[in-house]
């Protein structure tokens, strides 16, 4: 494996080994709970997070991004619960508003080109330290899944029924929203604002086409995510293309293949 002699390829490889299953797992419940718009809006709010960091002269914009995303996610959840407006309308308003604020601040004095890398991301720029952080986030997600998955699933099927069974629905949904917020913010530098949602949604959406229960759903989602990630990395090296978009193309092909296979599997 000739291309593995480069440090950035090795780090990129390790990062994908972590990000891909993480996205595969998280995506299952994002799709189940119809939160695709929500995670997309979170991605867009990254601009505002960075902008706030720049305004406040905080060197580590990761921190302001994460804090802003968590506030954004919880606020969105609270407004959603009031349900006087339709959810996708609310999310679109929030998303456009925060993107615009971020872009206005970052473009002050014609400085935007400095931040445009955020749009596409670069998985090969990940450092050892960031990989370790990613590993910690991955472990935290596994713990959350292990201890809270049934309650999350119960709430996603029917909120009233879950509440009657004593599931703390609001708490569980808030924790889940915070997890999505943190993971989106944490990976956006490597995956990019434009494509992060595709990587979260596509593996799970493909897995749903062919899975008959929760175990298959998770297994297929993780495998598709991992396979697309690794194949995308290798292909992008040989074709000299951007890694993120290459992965998304492969994952999309998986989606269409599973869609075609659906009538065969489910009959």
């Amino acid at each position: 494996m000739n291309f593995m002699k480069y440090d950035f390829m090795r780090n990129g490889f390790l990062a994908i080994l972590l990000i891909a299953p993480l996205f595969g797992i998280l995506g299952t419940m994002i799709v189940n709970n119809k939160l695709a718009f929500f995670s997309d809006a979170l991605g867009h709010s990254a601009f505002t997070g960075v902008a706030i960091g720049v305004l406040l002269h905080i060197a580590d914009t990761n921190l302001t991004m994460a804090v802003f995303a968590i506030i954004f996610a919880l606020l969105l959840n609270a407004i959603k619960r009031k349900d006087s407006l339709s959810t996708d309308t609310i999310i679109s308003v929030f998303s456009s508003f925060s993107t615009a604020i971020g872009l206005v601040i970052l473009s002050l004095g014609g400085q935007f080109s400095k931040y445009s890398a955020l749009l596409v991301g670069d998985i090969l720029s990940i450092s050892k330290k960031e990989i370790i952080l990613l590993l910690l986030v991955f472990l935290a997600t596994l713990l959350f899944w292990g201890f809270c998955f049934n309650r999350l699933e119960a709430a996603s099927l029917n909120i009233s029924l879950a509440k009657s069974k004593g599931v703390p629905v609001t708490t569980i949904e808030s924790i889940f929203a915070v997890f999505i917020a943190l993971i989106v913010m944490f990976s956006i530098k490597w995956v990019g604002i434009l494509l992060i949602n595709a990587l979260l949604i596509l593996p799970a959406a493909s897995a749903r086409n062919i899975a008959g229960n929760m175990r298959e759903y998770h297994l297929f989602s993780i495998l598709i995510s991992l396979f697309s990630g690794l194949l995308g990395l290798v292909l992008s090296y040989f074709l000299n293309t951007a890694t993120g978009p290459t992965i998304v193309i492969i994952a999309s092909v998986f989606f269409f293949l599973t869609l075609l296979a659906k009538p065969l599997v489910k009959s």
Partner: peptide, 23 residues
Amino acid sequence: NTPASVYDMFAAYISKIPVCLYQ
């Protein structure tokens, strides 16, 4: 097309063993 079997749904309400991991 939600990939939840009746077991998954039922167990989610009455058990803590994560249905995504094993039956």
